[in-house]
Structures are given as C-alpha cells and as structure tokens.
Design a binder for these strands. Structure first.
Lengths: 116, 116
DNA sequence: CGGCACGTTCAGATCATCTTTATATTGGCC
DNA sequence: GGCCAATATAAAGATGATCTGAACGTGCCG
C-alpha cells in the first residue's frame, strides 16, 4: 500500500467523506505534511471501490455541486489494520537499527567493527 | 520512499552489508514478512548510490564469489530518520482514526452494518 | 554428479502515482 | 463587470520504482 492510499483509508475510517473532504482530513491528520493531488485521490477512490475496500455511501448536492460520499468497508478497515501493524513493525525495526548505528559509530567501538 | 527502499536503508543502518546479506537482514528484521526480490534490491542499490544515500564500502572475494559491500551515508541515515518520523505520524493517525471508528459504531464487526 | 545455497546482473512489464487539463458553481474583491 | 480563489469531480498521458523472470558462475554436499 502506497502513501496516498493509506491516508485515504485513514481519512475514511472514522466516518464517510466526499473527495474534497478526504483531502482536507488528510492534510489535517498529517499536520500539513501530506497534500493529496486531485488526480491521485479520485483515481484511488475508483480503484479502492473496485477492490472493495471502499464503497459509495451517498450523493449529496450542496450549492449545485455534487458531493459523492464514500465509506470504508469492513474489508477496508481490515486492510488498514493490517497496514497499521506493518507500520508498527517497520518503525520498530528502523528505530532499533538506527540506535545500533549510534553504538556502532560512537565510542571506542572500532574494535567492534573489526570483529564483525 | 517505497517499502523495499526503506528496508534496504534500515538493513544498512547498523553496519555495511553486501546485497545478499541485505536480503537476509531484511527477512530477519521483518520477521519473514518482507522478502526482497533480487532485481529490486540491486537496482535500488545502484539508484541509492547515485542519490548519495548509500555508497560503496569495499569488495570482498569469498569462495570465488564477489561480495560488494555498501554502507549508509550520513545523508542516507538522515533520510531514514526522516522516514521514521513520517512512519510514526502515520501510525499515530491510523491508530486514532481506527479507534474513532470503533466509537462511531463501525467496528470490525460487519454484523453491525447488517442491522442498519 | 546433480541439486542447492550463494551472489550478482539485466530486460521487460506492471501499475500506483503525478502532472496537466477540463468542467462547473459560488462568493469575495477591485 | 471581470478576475480569482475555493469547492468538487473527472480523465488523459507521463513517470519511475518495483516485480517478473531469467541468466550466469562458484562452491558445498550427499
């Protein structure tokens, strides 16, 4: 799962949203670090719908503009849960390896390097 | 940063390694969940070298086979650190949204939706 | 001597994402 | 009145990391 897909599922987890609302929610959740491109978003929503991770909730018309709401399916929630576990393991691995790097680089550890 | 790239940098963080050793380290760190494809690995090492995140450490010949060691550069370590922070925020967001979903009444139990 | 682990390399295909463009409405500003 | 920003979705073409699949050579072991 790539970044945009992950964030879209995350934004839809708590409640149904329409495309533009997903964009805003992702921007907020990521602290402004992630800005979904419109092309990416709507293509992803179509793809995720086809995959069954997301489904159409309803259409609303506000100020003459259509808002197409999507919701996460139970498959989508499960996929996000699996992805979250994967993130947890990745984070753990990187953290431990970076810590090992500190020990490797600091102090009189030159002998250690030779031993390896 | 994609998955394979992340794991390659992580495997190289603690010490220099050659390609095959990176594969094994990634498999171990990920608990067997990630298995790098040879094509992906060596292409990535070339690319990361060109980008300056990784650099050639040394060549060793063992049992007639060449082992090409790579090491993480300081740029590479920094990139991995940034990526790790990004993972932390992503994990946090997904966790909180999934928790909100529970409260919203759309827990993993699909039976709930049937009641609607 | 046949198979398996080791170790690297390359060509071609896939596909999510990015970029760009198009369309349409509302509302603020000069 | 005209311009621009924000809202809202859609679709076409380009990009590029990854995947697929294969090749090639060595050494170890039963």
């Amino acid at each position: 799962m790539r970044e945009p897909t992950f964030w879209i599922l995350t934004a839809l987890a708590s409640q149904p949203r329409y495309g533009y609302s997903v964009m805003q929610q992702v921007a907020q959740l990521s602290g402004g670090a992630v800005t979904l491109q419109a092309g990416t978003l709507y293509a992803a929503l179509d793809r995720l719908t086809a995959e069954g991770l997301v489904e159409l909730d309803r259409d609303e018309i506000v100020d003459g503009r259509t808002r197409r709401y999507y919701r996460l399916t139970s498959d989508g929630a499960e996929a996000l849960g699996v992805e979250t576990e994967r993130l947890r393991r990745s984070l753990e691995a990187a953290t431990s390896q970076l810590a090992a790097r500190q020990r490797f680089g600091l102090g009189p550890a030159a002998a250690l390097r030779a031993a390896w």
